[in-house]
Design a protein around this nucleic acid. Structure first.
Length: 136
DNA sequence: TAGGCCATCTGGTCCT
DNA sequence: AGGACCAGATGGCCTA
């Protein structure tokens, strides 16, 4: 019996293999055919997940813009970026660096990753000259 | 060469 | 019963 363990084929090869082995053969083995189909569905599902990751990646500003990010980096930076936008919304000023809500209470000064990188690009900004705690 | 990342396979579980 | 979702195992590729 043909098994598929640890075999990796291109999509068209899989389709050929499945059709030849299971549709034209008298020795059709349903369980193996189902496994083959399940593998194909899983590949499609994984591709859908990757498409979503790519779409999310496009929304995250980086320097350089085409910087390669791993999936875990995409998730973490997306979360940070949402916090960044939320902070800007909270302060109501899109021009100034966002400040953590807790910073306002404790009167400390720290910048988020996205404000930090923006300020680094603009060395003339007076905030850069202040003593900052670094990005959070 | 070790470690990180990824795609794929696989079996289990849950849902329709 | 079949499909979706998930996590573990495995092997390949790339980089420091």
């Amino acid at each position: 019996m043909e098994t598929f363990t640890n075999y990796q084929f291109h999509e068209e090869t899989w389709e050929q293999l499945c059709s030849v082995t299971f549709q034209n053969s008298a020795e059709t083995v349903p369980s193996t055919k189902q496994r083959c189909q399940a593998n194909a569905r899983e590949r499609d599902r994984t591709q859908n997940v990757n498409t979503a990751f790519n779409a999310l990646r496009l929304l995250i500003p980086t320097e350089p813009p085409d910087r390669k990010l791993s999936k875990i980096e995409i998730l973490r930076l997306a979360g940070s970026y949402i916090t960044h936008l939320d902070n800007q919304l909270y302060t109501g000023n899109m021009e100034q660096p966002c400040i953590q809500k807790s910073d306002i209470e404790y009167k400390s000064t720290s910048l988020c990753t996205f404000c930090w990188s923006t300020l680094k690009k603009d060395k003339t900004t007076s905030l850069v000259n202040k003593e900052l705690q670094g990005p959070y």
